[in-house]
Design a protein around this nucleic acid. Sequence first.
RNA 1: UGUCCCAUAGUAUAAUGGUAGUACGACAGACUCUGACUCUGUUUGUCGAGGUUCGAAUCCUCGUGGGACAACCA
Length: 549
Amino acid sequence: MTEEKSLNFVEEIIEEDLKSGKYTAIKTRFPPEPNGYLHIGHAKSICLNFGLALKYGGETNLRFDDTNPTTEETEYVDSIKNDIRWLGFSWAKELYASNYFDQLYEFAVRLIQKGLAYVDDSSSEKIASEKGTPATPGVENEYRSRTIEENLRLFEEMKNGKYADGEKVLRAKIDMASPVMQMRDPVMYRIKHAHHHRTGDKWCIYPLYDFAHGQSDSIENITHSICTLEFVPHRPLYNWFIEKLEIFPSHQYEFARLNMTYTVMSKRKMLKLVEEGYVSGWDDPRMPTISGIRRKGYTPSSIRTFCDKIGVAKRDNLIDISLLESCIREELNVTAERKMVVLNPVKLIIDNYDEEKSELLETESLPNDPDKKREVSFSKTLWIEQEDFMENPVKKWFRLAPGQMVRLKSAYIIKCESFDKDENGNITEIHATYIPESKSGHDESGLKVKGTIHWVDAKNALEVEVRLYDRLFTSENPAQEENFLDFINPDSLQIKKAYAESGIKNAEPGNHFQFVRIGYFCLDPDSTNDNLIFNRTATLKEGFKVKQH
RNA sequence: UGUCCCAUAGUAUAAUGGUAGUACGACAGACUCUGACUCUGUUUGUCGAGGUUCGAAUCCUCGUGGGACAACCA
C-alpha cells in the first residue's frame, strides 16, 4: 500500500488544467540569468520545473535570461548548464532570451502602432521621480503624448544607434496612477552600446526583464511559468503584454523562495563572502552554491530528496539546515564505504602484543552489505582518538579509562592498564593489554563491553589532510542581521592532519566515505598523490555528549 | 497613509466543509563490534474576534502579525 503523496499548489493547478482540457501537455522552463552561480535555492526551482514536466509528461526548456549585456557572461552559462546536468536533469531546448531580440523588437513596434508604447527622453532620475511612490500616484510627462509616427521613428533611431546610452527609453503606456507600481508605464527598452555575449554588436538597445520574460514564455508556449514570490507584482504586467500583443497566454505562478538557517542566499552577500576572502571561492564547501555543496560531498540525489521534502508553498520560510544534512546522511549511510581514521591521535600501546607481530583483520566496509569487506592491519602500536580516553570518566562512559575495557573495532577487546602524561598534563601514551580470545568474528572470551572505538595501525598509518567544515554563520538568520559579516563563524573550517588506515590511498575523486564514528567525507579535488585531502560532508549524529567538564 | 501575497507543533509541510497527520529537530528508552543506523515512546500546533453551517484549519467579514512593490537589474 503506497500512500498517495499530497500535491503542492502548483501540481493542483496543473492537474486541474490537464483535467479540464485547458492543456493536453505542460511545458515549463528554468530561466537563469547568466550572471552568477547557481545555489541551493535555484536547485529548488530546478527540481520544481523539471520535476513537474517529468511527472506530467511535459518538457522543460533551459532559457538564459540574457537581456543585460553588461553583466552576463558565457562562463556562467557553462557553469549553470553543468550544475543542472549534475543535478540530474536534461532540458528539451537550450534557449536564450537573446534569440528573440528580433521578435521582441517587432512586438515593441506593434505596441507603438497600437498607441501603447512611447519613447521617453527623460533621465532615469526624472522617470523615477515621476513614477511616484507606492502610496502616491505618478504623473504623466510631455513625451507620453507623442504621436505614433514620431514614436516609430524615434524607436527605430534608437535601434540604429543614433542616441547615447540613457538618452531615451521606450515605455509602455499604461497608467501612471496605477496602485501597482509595475504598471506605471514601465520601461521596455533601454539603450546600451554594449557587446552582448551572444548577439555581439548587433544591438544597442536591449529589452528589460518585463518585456522579455513573458514574451519568451509565450514564444516557447510555456504553459506554466513558475517563479518566486518577488515577481507577484509583475504578473499584471506579464498578462498585459500578452493580452495586448495577442500572443500565446502563458501563465505565471509564484512560490516562496528557499531560505535556510545559518546561510545567506543572496547573490550580493555571497559575492561579498568570496571577494572579501571569507571563503576560498564560489565552490568553497561552506557556500550554498551547487558547486560548493557538491565539493562538500553532497550527491545530486540527496539534493533532489531535500527539494522534495521542503515542499512548495507561498509562505516565507526558513528551512532548518539539519533537514539538508539528514538527507545526505540518509543516503551516505547505505552507500559510503567505511574507513577508520583518527583525527586527534594519541598513542595506544598493547603491552602484551609482540613487537614484531602484525596481522590483517577483516572488517566490513558496508554494514548492510556483507560482501563488501576489506582488511586492515593491526600491530602493537595504534593511534586512537584522544576523545576516546578519559582519565576520570563521567557516568555512563563506555570508552577507555584506567582499568576499563573496550572493543577495538574489528579487532580485540583491550583493557587500559596505565597512561603517561607530559608536563602540561596532556595524555601522551596509553598502555593496554589485549585479550587474544576476543578477536572479532572468533570471540571466545565471553566478555561483554559497552564501547567500541576505532583505531589505526601506527605502523602503516597514512597521514591525510581533513577539512572539517561547519556552518559559516553563528546566526540562524544572518541575512536578517544588521551586518551579516559580524556573524561569521570563526571555526567554520578546521584543517588538520589525521591518520588513516592505509587502504584509503586508493581513494578517487567522487568517492564518499564514512570515517567510522566520525562522519562522512569525500576526496577534495585539491588532493595530490602525496597529500590526500578529505572534506567533511556531514558529521554523524552525536548520540552521547560529555556533560560540562 | 495605495496595491498585492501570506498565516497549522521549534522548523517545514498535509488535511480541498466531516478523527489535525507526516518529516526534520528535541527528549526518553530498546538494540548495537560505529553512543551511528534501526525501532519504540514523549513533547509541542490551526494568529484573534465575529459570522455562515448540523459541523470550520478550510468559506465570509473585520482586525492583528509577517512579507513584497517606488532599478534604464533579473
